[in-house]
Design a protein around this nucleic acid. Sequence first.
DNA 1: TTGGAGTCAATAGG
DNA 2: CCTATTGACTCCAA
Length: 386
Amino acid sequence: TPDSPISSAEESVKSQEEPVSQPPAQESSEPSDSQPGMPLPVPGHSGLSIQEMVAMSPELDTYAITKKVKEVLTDNNLGQRLFGESILGLTQGSVSDLLARPKPWHKLSLKGREPFVRMQLWLSDPRNVEKLMDMKRLEKKAYMKRRHSSVSESHSVDSAMSGGDFSQGASPQPHQQHPKQQLKKPRVVLAPEEKEALKRAYQEKPYPSPKTIEELANQLNLKTSTVINWFHNYRSRIRRELFIEEIQAAAGEGGSPSARTVKSGGEGDNSCDGTESDSTAEGRTSGAAGSEEHGQLSKSPGLNHREEEAAGGETSSAPGTSSQKAGVIDSLFSFPEATSIVAPTIAASRNPKDSSLRKKKAANLNNIIHRLEKAASRDEPHEWEF
DNA sequence: TTGGAGTCAATAGG
DNA sequence: CCTATTGACTCCAA
């Protein structure tokens, strides 16, 4: 019995019943699930799959969402791991990355939007914190139990909470089946100097030819695949940083000259284009102004109020099934506090002067050049010669 | 195949 | 414990 998600501000009178435990309790299997049929139990309620919701979702302000999520998590001492695993279905590292460097909505793929839709949904759930805390408690309990009692394999009885967020059955024992050589793959760690060399190479040629890659690998004593991976990752991460700067640049327009500090990844750039140190504004980190005091417990995430007039107009009382779906969708439009979540469309910055944008343009150019070369000439001329 | 997008998961610091 | 970083992987589209 999915509880009605209606997120209207008030309307608390008729409380609905219990969460009532949830349905599916599929059991472990390899992490690699590829069942097109029914992907994830996922969301909280409603009969919609997240994918459907993502598809219907309005444009969300990923930056505002992550900011809010981080705030709520820290205010309540909830970790990224717990949040990620139970709400987003992602690992801690991914959550950290996502929260720290959200890409603008319009640059996200359908898949990439999923976590943000989930976060938005979570934010609009009045009991979000409470639920997570419960889960945390359960986890701890299970942990204590585990270490206390024997190691016998027992079933963790934790189950989905009302909403039915996921709960990956804890899988304590990584049962090693084959004592066979445990090739743990040492995880390559590139030395600072190696990274430097790679970055230098990147500046010369963001898209090195196989030949060049081979050479680099030899010179640095690295596996070819490592070099390839490094370039993939580096390009990808550089790109992402540009997105961030773009967002902030856009945010800084209008009247608030406050610029957010971003750890600019200024490397020892050469002077391809004479671009220089970006003049990032002063660090305005803090946010210490203890404006509101949070009543630890009762910090009800206030939440939602309709931004716009309701679309469906009808009274929510209608028991119609469709109405409840509408409610869930609606929550995508609402947002806690005054912060509006609906993105104002990241305006194409109108400030060509911004160095970050120049970098971006440079990156785009590199990309274009790369493709042109590829298309135009099958034969790679030669490496950095000429 | 190549490159991009998302993630995972080991690991380095707190 | 928790979070941030980052090499490697999986999927996908061109």
